[in-house]
């Protein structure tokens, strides 16, 4: 029977194709063409760039270590100077005015990005890695371990996120100080958030794993004698990556929000983060005292600055999801 075989042969002669490369090219093309998603991508890129610049060229933009020390007032107390409103006079650092305690808001916001975005990336990526490993293995192996993992994620899902975040952060902080293990406040928050963030990815990964498990190519791999561990690593995990990537891009916005909310609720002080540390939630909570006196900009401007980033990353994630959705490609 040479019938069907010949069709395939003729079809493939035309040109060699690299489906993955072509797919990636197509994804990029579609994201760029989708105006909204592209805007999101640009916003995200600019924020990442700014956060990056802070580390590599501290002197280039005029902020960095110098500014952070200038934020620190004598004795760690506000110097009592009233905030000055946004102005174009006197240099770029005054564009958005000064805050309570007389620090320049613009450089402080820029300096915040490194902490906010850096830690958020750390949290989301670590959570994703743990989640992928746990989710894919438990989904593929099934049985008691799978059940156990699901129940554990159930528990994490049944506690409000913010409540869990502050509870874990404080209790972790307490145990660390008791055992005399030095850990910085932000690392502490990050650790707590990783502990409560991985179940999201574990669940996502598990559900995709379950659908991949019954697909033909896994059956083929099993038939060809491939081991289970090998199957998970070579077949399941690569298949899981792109939806997880979409989830990461959507979560990055939320985790920045949670991160700054935890700071805002005053946890930073409890776990020993300095009052003047540039972090967006921290800057906003510092401005809270002056709000009723009419000083709106120390709150308003950092909030907008944060909002633009979360909106940007969200529309990028949304666009990416649409683009990666096979239904949209046709």
């Amino acid at each position: 029977m040479q019938t069907t075989v010949s069709i395939f042969k003729r079809g493939t002669i035309q040109k060699k194709r690299h489906p993955k490369v072509e797919d990636a090219k197509e994804t990029i093309k579609l994201v760029v063409k989708n105006k909204v998603a592209f805007t999101g991508l640009v916003i995200t890129a600019v924020y990442l760039f700014l956060a990056f610049m802070d580390q590599v060229y501290p002197a280039y933009l005029g902020f960095g270590p110098n500014i952070i020390t200038s934020l620190l007032q004598v004795g760690g107390q506000p110097n009592g100077k009233f905030p000055t409103p946004p102005t174009t006079v006197g240099g770029w650092h005054l564009w958005f005015g000064t805050g309570l305690g007389h620090f320049d808001i613009f450089p402080a916001m820029l300096a915040s990005l490194r902490i906010d975005i850096g830690y958020s990336l750390l949290i989301v990526l670590s959570g994703a890695i743990i989640g992928i490993v746990v989710g894919s293995f438990s989904g593929y192996y099934g049985g008691v371990w799978d059940e156990l993992v699901m129940r554990i994620t159930d528990i994490f899902y049944s506690i409000p996120f913010i409540v869990m975040a502050i509870a874990f952060t404080t209790i972790l902080s307490f145990t660390f100080t008791q055992d005399n293990i030095p850990i910085s406040g932000f690392n502490l928050i990050a650790l707590a958030l990783i502990i409560i963030w991985w179940p999201t990815y574990a669940r996502l990964t598990r559900s995709i794993t379950l659908s991949l498990k019954s697909s033909r190519f896994i059956e083929a791999a099993i038939a060809s004698g491939s081991s289970r561990v090998r199957n998970v690593i070579t077949h399941i995990i690569p298949g899981v990556l792109s939806p997880v990537f979409v989830q990461i891009s959507l979560d990055l916005g939320s985790i920045v929000l949670v991160f700054s909310t935890v700071e805002f609720l005053g946890l930073g002080q409890i776990i020993g983060i300095n009052y003047y540390t540039p972090e967006l939630g921290n800057i906003i909570v510092n401005g809270q005292g002056g709000m009723l006196l009419g000083y709106w900009w120390p709150i308003f401007i950092p909030g907008i600055f944060l909002l633009i980033f979360t909106v940007g990353i969200n529309i990028f994630g949304d666009g990416l999801r649409d683009v990666l959705d096979p239904k949209m490609r046709r």
Partner: peptide, 8 residues
């Protein structure tokens, strides 16, 4: 014999 149409 059963034949096929070449190409796709």
């Amino acid at each position: 014999k059963l034949e096929t149409i070449p190409g796709t």
